[in-house]
């Protein structure tokens, strides 16, 4: 995945575009959880977009919205040039199969009462593709492509290991030839010893099939390894989005800087001690997020302006956007 992918012509095409996406969950008592509150970004064909952020920042919510599992409360979601809210049910059914998701928990994503083979042929049954025999062949081929022996096709999920189950989830998605896959913490629940091989499988498939990924994780070293661009989320907003190297080597947003300094591994080479920031305090509730800049309650640079004005989503370096009043191209704040 770290290798640049596929046809350069297609690289400029946006496979997914979200504009001002909002996902609010109503709570009992009239309040709402603003899990995602006005996020805009594009995902280009063939790339891997990493999405990082603390727990509860809305990463999974964005991921689920991208594949139509959550209905946007506001904003638009486009697949290519198509606004999906404008599609008829049957058009949407045909289009959505190209946009798949692999979940963190590989076991929960498989119906315990279905054999692996039954799970694998189901997407094709739903889409009305092929015959019984051809679906079976496609399913077994996908199983092999995902690195599993076809013998396990008649087993049930509980008889298999976590790594095997994640491969089955991948194989199941492959049976309908998706273009785009949301990978939501796909290795977090797996044994450390098998994580590498699953990540390699994703990389190989991307290279081979020209897949596009949205790679959600809180492991910055993984994001650094797999993605070309990375978006940083905080409390339902996107704080920074840019090329992975730039974001990790030279983070422009105070939150990203704090997040990276809290991370022991990929310490940016030029990050001197005086620029290291620690995250202090608790993440505020998404039910009543802070006014103005959402990060202001934990930001060492916060001013009056941060309280009253929502920072703009500014492209302060080419292809590198930040939502902070005081961010500068060289990473200093002020």
């Amino acid at each position: 995945m770290s290798t640049a992918s596929q046809s350069s012509v297609e690289d400029d095409r946006n496979i997914v575009t979200v504009e001002n996406l909002k996902i609010h969950f109503p709570l009992k008592g009239g309040q709402t959880v603003k899990a995602v509150d006005g996020v805009s970004f594009q995902i280009r064909a063939g790339e891997t977009l990493g999405i990082i952020g603390e727990s509860g920042s809305g990463k999974s919510t964005v991921g689920r919205a991208l594949v139509g599992l959550l209905k946007p409360t506001g904003g638009t979601l486009r697949y290519g040039d198509t606004d999906i809210s404008a599609l008829s049910a049957s058009e949407y059914k045909r289009l959505r199969k190209n946009y798949q998701i692999i979940f963190q928990d590989p076991h929960a994503a498989l119906n315990p009462r279905m054999t692996i083979l039954q799970s694998l042929v189901e997407p094709m049954e739903i889409q009305g593709e092929g015959t019984r025999e051809s679906r079976r062949k496609t399913a077994l081929a996908a199983l092999e492509r995902a690195g599993l022996a076809t013998e396990i096709a008649l087993r049930h999920p509980h008889e298999l290991s976590g790594g095997q189950k994640q491969r089955i989830n991948i194989a199941r998605a492959l049976t309908v030839h998706p273009q785009f896959i949301v990978c939501d913490e796909v290795v977090a629940a797996l044994d450390v010893s098998v994580r590498g091989s699953i990540l390699n499988l994703f990389a190989d498939l991307q290279e081979e099939l020209g897949l596009t990924y949205a790679f959600i994780t809180h492991d910055i070293s993984v994001v650094a390894h797999v993605s070309q661009r990375v978006g940083v989320m905080y409390l339902g907003n996107m704080m920074e989005l840019g090329p992975t190297d730039a974001v990790i080597e030279n983070p422009l947003h105070p939150y990203t800087q704090a997040l990276l300094s809290a991370e022991p591994r990929p310490v940016p080479s030029d990050m001197r001690e005086d620029r290291r920031i620690r995250l202090e305090g608790e993440i505020p509730s998404p039910v009543a997020p802070p006014s103005g800049c959402r990060f202001r309650t934990r930001c060492p640079f916060a001013t009056e302006k941060c309280k009253t004005e929502v920072p703009q989503w500014r492209e302060i370096v080419r292809n590198h956007r930040v939502a902070c009043h005081y961010a500068t191209p060289d990473g200093r704040i002020g």
């Binding site: 689920r64 594949v67 139509g68 599992l69 949407y92 059914k93 045909r94 959505r96 199969k97 946009y99 798949q100 998701i101 979940f103 928990d105 929960a108 994503a109 498989l110 119906n111 315990p112 799970s119 189901e122 997407p123 739903i126 889409q127 989830n169 199941r172 309908v176």
Partner: peptide, 13 residues
């Protein structure tokens, strides 16, 4: 359950 969501993503009615 997640497997219900997974089936939804494939367009299940």
């Amino acid at each position: 359950e997640l497997y219900v969501d997974a089936a939804r993503c494939f367009g299940a009615s």
